[in-house]
Simulated assay, not measured.
Amino acid sequence: MVSSVWAALGLSLTCISALSLISPAWFQTPTFSFGVLTYCAWPQGDSWNQSCVTFRSLEDIPDFAWKVSAVMLLGGWLLLAFNAILLLSWAMAPKGLCPRRGSGPMPGVQAAAATATIVGLLVFPISLASPFAKEVCEASSAYHGGRCQVGWGYVTAISSAVLASLLPVISWPSVTNVQGTTILFSSDTEKIILVPKRNK
């Protein structure tokens, strides 16, 4: 049961991260918006009539910081997807094959995904100083949007990064050791029998 919950959380987090990654609404003006991989333009007051363009390769991305951010965010998403597949296969495996059930087989993969995503999110606003962003946002600079406002895509990416960084922390198994005592359960008397550990 617990492993199924972690698998569902991992898959949900992967889908949310993918949605934010392909979203063009990271920074936006009344007639233009851009994200890591896509940008869109539309006539004033007619946001339903959008024309969007996707960056098909790193060479198409207009700024070096933007490229670094794209690589880090894609790497973080791939690690999240890999972790979600591991969690799903671990949840569906027979109990005898995976005796230790709990929060997942590899919390380190999710921690690495969260770290890569956070680095990508911190690097991306540097690209506001690029000629592309300055033309769109008017007087923008690194970490200053100018006329551009933060859109839902960037907020969603931040939320998924926070969740991805919290899940490994809360999933870390807590083990309590009771030293020197063996606990036996007797089915005849339905009592717990404590047997002290003997030194050899």
Rank of each mutant, 00 (worst) to 15 (best):
N199V: 10
V71M: 11
S69D: 05
S17W: 04
L121D: 01
A142W: 07
I85Y: 08
F82E: 00
W77V: 00
A129I: 03
T189P: 02
Q28E: 13
D188G: 03
P24Q: 02
A112C: 13
G104L: 14
W90F: 15
V195G: 06
V169F: 08
C137A: 10
C52A: 10
V36Y: 05
Y154F: 15
M1V: 10
G10T: 02
T117K: 08
M72T: 01
L167R: 04
C98A: 14
S12T: 12
D188L: 14
M72R: 05
V136K: 02
G145M: 01
G180H: 15
L19N: 03
G104S: 15
V178R: 11
M1A: 12
L74M: 14
W172P: 00
Q110F: 03
A129P: 02
D188C: 00
V36A: 11
A161I: 05
A113C: 05
I193M: 05
S20R: 04
K200W: 08
T54E: 10
L194E: 11
S47M: 05
L88Y: 14
S171Y: 04
M1F: 11
F185G: 03
V178I: 15
I16A: 15
F55E: 00
T189M: 10
S33K: 10
H144D: 06
L73T: 01
T115Y: 13
G120R: 14
Q50W: 02
P43Y: 08
G104Q: 12
V109F: 12
P99V: 09
M92A: 15
I61Y: 03
Q149I: 07
G102F: 03
S89Q: 14
S3Y: 08
A25G: 01
L87I: 12
V123Q: 05
T14S: 15
F32E: 10
C40T: 03
G10K: 01
V109H: 01
V5P: 00
V178F: 14
G146A: 09
V68F: 10
R147N: 09
K95S: 03
R147M: 07
S160L: 14
W42D: 06
I22C: 11
Y143G: 02
N177I: 10
S130P: 04
A84C: 04
C15N: 03
S186Y: 02
V175E: 02
P196R: 13
D60T: 07
L166Q: 01
E190K: 13
E59R: 13
P94L: 10
A93D: 02
P24C: 01
V169W: 05
L167E: 04
K197W: 11
S89W: 11
K95F: 04
V150W: 07
C148Q: 07
L97E: 12
P105Y: 01
C98T: 12
A93F: 02
A133I: 00
A18K: 00
S69T: 05
V162I: 15
L97G: 04
L21Q: 06
T176P: 00
A112Q: 01
G75S: 08
L80A: 15
A139E: 07
R198A: 02
V136A: 06
R101A: 06
Q28M: 09
W90E: 11
C137E: 04
F34R: 06
W66Q: 07
A161D: 05
C148T: 03
D188I: 04
Y39D: 07
